[in-house]
Design a binder for these strands. Structure first.
Length: 952
RNA sequence: GCGCGGAUGGUGGAAUUGGUAGACACGAGAGACUUAAAAUCUCUUGACUUCACGGUCGUGCGGGUUCAAGUCCCGCUCUGCGCACCA
């Protein structure tokens, strides 16, 4: 009998696939297409690690599965080759990045092939190949023509070690994403893509994407759309004004001061008298402080008064103007109106600098009712200062524990009402009034009076002076309805559950500040309006006076693409003294990177390209006069923003792609990755949206389903890293003798793909054992000469159909670990069933089916056994097996029997037994009878085919 | 702080629609084969309890809904990740 030897069969089949070009595809309108891809790798010198193997195995299983479904499957691969590691290596060694890159690609490609990836290598692309970046540059010129690429002087993140500008997403916690050094801000002239123009378009499509929620949320937050208003605050004694941005224009009556960011242009002209010096000092300091320091000390807010005042356009009152670094220069207008009563940050600032706080929103509790009756009322809280307890009345079933409440009579003040109600209900009269707060709006239905109520309840706090309790005015039967209790703080929090009463307590004693929606107070004509309604009304009103307008802002900034590095796609721009920035005409593309000797940037903010004078000096495409090339290169993300389109038409020398071809293949059915939540995935979407607007593609969204997988950690549970020496190299695993099939199957068996998992050398051994069992089973079958029928054919057939159903289902929901466990169960079953012998044909079918369903996971063994079982061609060329639900039905079913929801027995009974008979059989079960005893079953529930539950 | 996940045996995990919790695998234990070991095959394996049949408990904690809850609702704890003064 032949031994299972992956090192022998795997290279054999890999060669056969390549030779017969089984993975190469073309447009075929007659077939259903599936386009799968993993995020293409940066081919580093270290080669692949287990994480690569994981992600690309997911892609390959999907590609192979859909080929077996008869689909025309595009599964390409390419290389994301521009970037810092190759350039840094070049700086160190003098080897041109292109040379190192070619070596790394060769190594990666070898690994992909050895893992049995079914890639169409005829479509291989490489972003640093001039034939590729020629079209990246072409896209740049198109964006430039549409005003979506522009140049601007701005403060930018600068990595002092890598000596390059970084985009916001490349700064992680104040450090460079590549080298980890602390970044700085530097003012430079930079190129940007205007992604902000597509903010709404990108946002709109997010809900419909079949992407993991966490990525969709991350993108939504990143775009950070805020609907609000810009409001003008006139400077006192001047016709200048400060424009603030607020999402809460409804709270404008509570705006008691204005705060400017230190970078705000008006700051230079402000500063009155004595304040001028401290202001200048503060601003100088804030600007010097790096942004990291500013955002790091989140707790303590600092600021200075300018000495000037602005006029609140709603109240007409003067409010002081402050400068503080908790207001960011780059967001909104760089200025805010502070509403300390309803904003945590403003409150912290106001409390520190003793600025006024004016409440303009009161909470609204309960649920709004139809046609409510309106009443003024009170909630009175009485504190006993000696025992530190609070007076409460317990209404038992009728209303739980409450403070004292009641409606105000005509002409009565809130304090009068409270004193009267306290005396009436509890008999306490010796009280000292402490404080009251703004009335809370509360909605409820008074069942006792059968009326809907909307009350405006003023919370009041009293202290008990002496504990003498007078007679209450209540009748005896009224008295019995409740009991008086004194509650400690903890008890109050636990027992006072009524929303109005709990809020009253929080407001008076807990220092509660209302921040959400509510009802306006102290807001002139808007009193009584809900904050949500007022949001629009206030903006309309301000707009009529010319002091405000609705405005939407975004957190997202434009995409900075300039890199002062050599190893990137040159920005195809020529700077002419007369014509400014002129795009390189299409027929002069690509602008090829010149070969140079010294790749190191010299810290002058320019790339090594600037020293390639022959290359830099050129002529203006407009006028032919001497001009200079742009020396910045493009962010690598630009190259990866359109490669999914280029894969479909990779050798097109006339255009970036042929629209018909792209529209056949795209968008992708599956895009697999485990990195880049926002940056790459947002940029691909942005470019595709633009291409749609340009009429270059028929779709807006490039990726139908994003498959986002977790990390594979080292055996000790920590991240794999070269320095710790715990990296698992897929090639090592294969060469140890486990083979690619075991590796592929194992990484998918580790757990659900979205979860992180730790590599286990024991685990892969287990999978190897499983593959070996399949192999052995097949060899035993092939070696059997006795072909007589003995017994378990029906059981084998049922198992086979169940297997196909389960694996098909599980692959569809990307649950590969359970698909594999289903195959294990099947193999275990076959081992048991073979004891009784088998008939030849049934076993041939049983093994053929197994080979077909395991083929996406273990394609080499599958093709080997496929051939041994006497089939033609490759497994992938045969159609996926089908199953017949009616064949899976067994004669007997197992019914669980519960008494009072607890399992008491099991019942094996014929499948076609009717419900009444099943129930009767269940009740007759010995152990069940014991638990029923003399009691009468009140109800017997039968869930067909599953269980019977007897309720007593 | 805000947002999004997660918590199930010794371990990774399964339970897809509320319906027999712990599939499958790892590890552990026992047996068969072997002079022996490895490999392979078979069996056992949540805890407690019982000679056994069986019973009690059990999906982070506390409540609730239901004939029935890992699954639904309310309130917590811990934990991972993302964002983080965005007005």
């Amino acid at each position: 009998m032949q031994r299972y030897n992956p090192s022998e069969i795997e290279p054999k089949w890999q060669a056969a696939w390549q030779e017969q070009r089984v993975n190469e595809v073309d447009v075929d309108a007659s077939k259903k297409k599936t386009y799968t891809a993993g995020m293409f790798p940066y081919p580093s010198g270290a080669g692949m690690h287990a994480g690569h193997a994981f992600g690309y195995t997911i892609v390959d299983v999907l590609a192979r599965f859909y080929r077996q479904q008869g689909h025309n499957v595009l599964n390409p691969m390419g290389w994301d080759t521009f970037g810092l590691p190759a350039e840094n290596y070049a700086i160190k060694t003098g080897t041109a990045p292109a040379v190192v890159t070619a070596q790394n690609i060769a190594n990666f490609k070898k690994q992909f092939k050895r893992m049995g990836m079914s890639i169409d290598w005829s479509r291989e692309i490489n972003t640093s190949d001039p034939e590729y970046y020629r079209w990246t540059q072409w896209v740049f010129t198109k964006l430039f023509e549409r005003g979506l690429a522009y140049q601007k002087e701005s403060l930018q993140w600068w990595c002092p070690v890598d000596k390059t500008v970084l985009a916001n997403e490349q700064v992680e916690g104040g450090h460079c994403w590549r080298c980890g050094s602390l970044v700085e801000k530097k003012s430079m002239k930079q190129w940007f893509f205007k992604i902000t123009e597509y903010a709404d378009s990108l946002l709109e499509e997010i809900p419909a994407l079949d992407w993991p929620q966490k990525i969709k949320t991350a993108q939504t937050n990143w775009i950070g759309r805020s609907v609000g208003a810009e409001i003008e605050f006139l400077l006192e004694g001047s016709d200048q004004s400060i424009t603030v941005f607020s999402t809460r224009p409804d709270t404008i009556f509570g705006a008691t001061f204005v705060v400017l960011a230190p970078e705000h242009p008006l700051v230079k002209t402000l500063g009155v008298g004595d304040f001028k010096e401290s202001l200048q000092e503060y601003v100088a300091n804030a600007v010097k402080k790096s942004e990291i320091e500013r955002t790091n000390d989140t707790k303590e807010k600092t600021g200075v008064f300018t000495g000037s005042y602005a006029i609140n356009p709603a109240t007409g009152e003067n409010v002081p103007i402050w400068v503080a670094d908790y207001v960011l220069g780059g967001y909104g207008t760089g200025a805010i109106m502070a509403v300390p009563a309803h904003d945590e940050r403003d409150l912290a600032f106001a409390e520190k600098y003793r600025l006024p706080v004016v409440q303009v929103v009161v909470p609204e509790t309960g649920t709004r009712q139809e046609n409510p009756e309106f009443r003024q009322s009170i909630v009175a809280i009485v504190r006993n200062p000696h025992t530190n307890t609070y007076l409460s009345v317990n209404w038992g079933e009728k209303g739980g524990s409450l403070f004292i409440g009641g409606g105000m009579d005509d002409g009565e003040t809130a304090i009068d009402t409270a004193r009267r109600e306290i005396a009436e209900e509890t008999g306490y009269t010796s009280l000292k009034f402490i404080s009251q707060s703004e009335a809370i709006h509360h909605h409820y239905f008074a069942h006792s009076k059968n009326v809907a109520r909307h009350i405006q309840a003023t919370p009041l706090l009293f202290e008990l002076i002496d504990e003498t309790q007078n007679d209450t005015a209540l009748e005896a039967d009224e008295k019995d309805q409740f009991t008086i209790e004194w509650l400690s703080e903890d008890e109050v929090l636990a027992k006072i559950n009524d929303e109005l009463h709990a809020t009253s307590y929080q407001t008076l004693i807990g220092g509660y500040r209302h921040r959400g929606e509510g009802i306006l107070v102290n807001s002139g004509a808007f009193d009584g309006t809900s904050t949500s309604d007022a949001r629009e009304q206030v903006v309309d009103w301000l707009e009529q006076q010319g002091s405000g307008r609705a405005k939407t802002t975004y957190k997202m900034r434009d995409w900075l693409i300039s890199r002062q590095r050599y190893w990137g796609a040159p920005i195809p721009i020529i700077h002419c003294a007369d014509h400014g920035a002129v795009p390189v005409p299409e027929d002069q593309l690509p602008v090829v990177l010149p070969e140079i000797e010294d790749f190191a940037p010299k810290g002058d903010g320019k790339s090594a390209l600037a020293r390639a004078t022959d290359w830099v000096n050129t002529t203006c495409p407009e006028c032919g006069k001497p001009a200079m090339r742009e020396t910045d290169t493009m962010d690598g993300y630009a190259c990866s923003s359109w490669y999914l389109l280029r894969y479909t038409d990779p050798h097109n020398a006339e255009a970036a792609w042929d629209p018909a071809t792209v529209n056949y293949w795209n968008p992708l059915e599956f895009y697999v990755g485990g990195d880049h939540a926002v940056a790459h995935l947002l940029y691909v979407r942005f470019w595709t949206h633009v291409f749609k607007d340009m009429g270059l593609v028929d779709f807006k969204e490039p990726v139908k389903k994003l498959v986002y997988h977790g990390y594979i950690n080292a055996e000790d549970g920590t991240k794999m890293s070269k320095s710790k020496g715990n990296v698992v190299d897929p090639l090592d695993v294969i060469n140890q003798g486990y083979g690619a099939d075991a590796l592929r199957t194992y990484v998918l068996f580790m757990g659900p793909i979205e979860l992180d998992a730790a590599w286990s050398s024991k685990g892969i051994a287990g999978i190897y054992r499983f593959l070996n069992r399949i192999w052995t089973l097949s060899q035993e079958y092939l070696a059997t000469s006795d072909r007589s029928f003995i017994g378990n054919d029906k059981a084998v057939t049922i198992a086979r159909h169940k297997l196909v159903r389960k694996v098909t289902d599980d692959i569809h929901r990307l649950s590969f670990n359970t698909a594999i466990s289903g195959m294990m169960e099947y193999v275990n079953d076959l081992y048991k069933l073979k004891v009784d012998g088998f008939s030849y044909d049934v076993w041939h079918d049983a093994l053929t089916t197994l080979v077909q369903v395991i083929a996406p996971f273990a394609p080499h063994m599958a093709d080997e056994l496929w051939q041994q079982l006497g089939h033609e061609g490759f497994v992938q060329q045969a159609l996926w097996p089908s199953w017949d639900d009616s064949l899976i039905v067994e004669d007997m079913m197992t019914i669980a029997i519960q008494v009072q929801g607890k399992l008491r027995g099991q019942l094996a009974i014929s499948k076609d037994t009717d419900a009444e008979a099943v129930k009767a059989a269940a009740l007759a079960h010995e152990n069940v009878e014991k638990f029923i005893g003399d009691k009468k079953p009140a109800k017997v529930i039968y869930v067909p085919g599953r269980l019977v539950n007897v309720v007593l």
